[in-house]
């Protein structure tokens, strides 16, 4: 075990960053899809790009996987510059694209072998490896069926297996659970956790599902209008919107004891509306009994109390706003999205 660990160690770059992105910009004509993003991903972490549709998530992934040329800026993936060494970048990363890219007329097994051929992996290695990966994503039974007979979930799992065929250290997942049912989504989450835990893989995923980012990612960058608006661990992001919310209903509307409640050290903010106090506090579990005691000591009666923990939803909506997006999108993107959704539901 220790010898293996040292192998892993020696592969990492000195500061442990497997992805370094500086001021990456992409313009499509006059449309600025990505307006200069900078971030680093450490080896072994799951890094998530979270943002609404059209925020620039896929564009960034496509630039990092060298499918799109960036307008300006630089990025280094596994030590290779995306502009100077695109072929080496492609060789060292795995990509699970947003759309379904497997060939429908071939079987799952043929598809994964084809992928291996495109990476130049000799058949003597790719055949057993393909079997292993198909077993990993639980497709061994269906491996000799044509992909056109696969369900959306099976296709997504096949894409994942194809993305792993070249032994990547870094795996890009673009909206890995888009349009999937709950069972498949749970399974995909399980694989993602397993890749990190058992194979020490670094994962870069995009998503617009908050719960997904919250439960999977070690660090999240919230991206909107082509810019990173906030970056940190899920807990940091939640904390940034300011603690737990306690709502206490009191029988008597008078007297106003807001100022007394605000004196409790854990309480950060108190607002009163009619007979209800809306209190923002750190560590709500400890603050609420103190608040109850205080209210009782004033001779008042508590009618109800509720404690709400902040969710990523709130942090997210606070940062990106709640208005609906009507981003410009090109025909090509719409078409591929339609095809993806159609197949996911099949």
């Amino acid at each position: 075990m220790s010898s293996q660990e040292s192998v892993v160690e020696s592969r990492s770059s000195p500061n442990g960053a497997i992805v370094k992105v500086e001021n990456l910009v992409k313009e499509f004509g006059t449309l600025k899809a990505v307006k200069g993003v900078s971030f680093e991903i450490q080896e072994g972490e799951i890094f998530g790009f979270l943002g609404p549709n059209g925020a620039g998530k896929s564009t960034t992934i496509n630039m990092l996987t060298t499918l799109l040329k960036s307008t300006s800026g630089m990025a280094e993936i596994c030590g290779y510059d995306i502009h100077k060494n695109p072929t080496e970048v492609r060789r060292s990363v795995g990509v699970v694209p947003q759309e379904y890219t497997a060939d429908e007329d071939l079987t799952g097994y043929e598809n994964i072998l084809l992928c291996a051929d495109l990476y130049g992996i000799p058949r003597s290695n790719s055949k057993p490896h393909a079997e292993e990966l198909l077993a990993l994503v639980e497709l061994s039974d269906a491996k000799n069926r044509k992909v056109s007979t696969y369900s959306g979930g099976m296709r997504r799992r096949l894409e994942l297996a194809c993305g792993l065929i070249n032994y990547p250290k870094l795996l890009f997942l673009d909206e890995p659970t888009l349009g999937l049912d709950v069972q498949t989504r749970t399974a995909v989450w399980k694989y993602i956790r397993m890749l990190k835990a058992e194979y020490h893989m670094t994962l870069f995923m995009t998503t617009h599902y908050l719960e997904e980012a919250d439960s999977l990612c070690d660090r999240i960058a919230i991206i909107d209008h082509g810019q990173i608006v906030k970056m940190g661990t899920p807990d940091q992001l939640k904390a940034s919107i300011g603690g737990d919310v306690i709502i206490v209903g009191v029988k008597e509307a008078d007297p106003d004891i807001s100022s007394d409640i605000a004196k409790i050290s854990l309480v950060k903010d108190v607002k009163k509306k009619d007979s209800e106090y809306r209190i923002k506090a750190e560590m709500g579990e400890e603050a609420s009994p103190q608040i109850m005691d205080l209210i009782r000591s004033k001779g008042l009666h508590v009618t109800k109390i509720s404690l709400t923990k902040p969710t990523l939803d709130e942090a997210y909506l606070e940062l990106t706003g709640s208005s609906l997006r009507e981003e410009e999108t090109n025909k090509m993107q719409m078409m591929s999205q339609r095809v993806t959704m159609m197949r996911a539901r099949s």
Partner: peptide
Amino acid sequence: GFMNKALSTP
């Protein structure tokens, strides 16, 4: 989408 898959390989 197959084109994108081929292009993401070396």
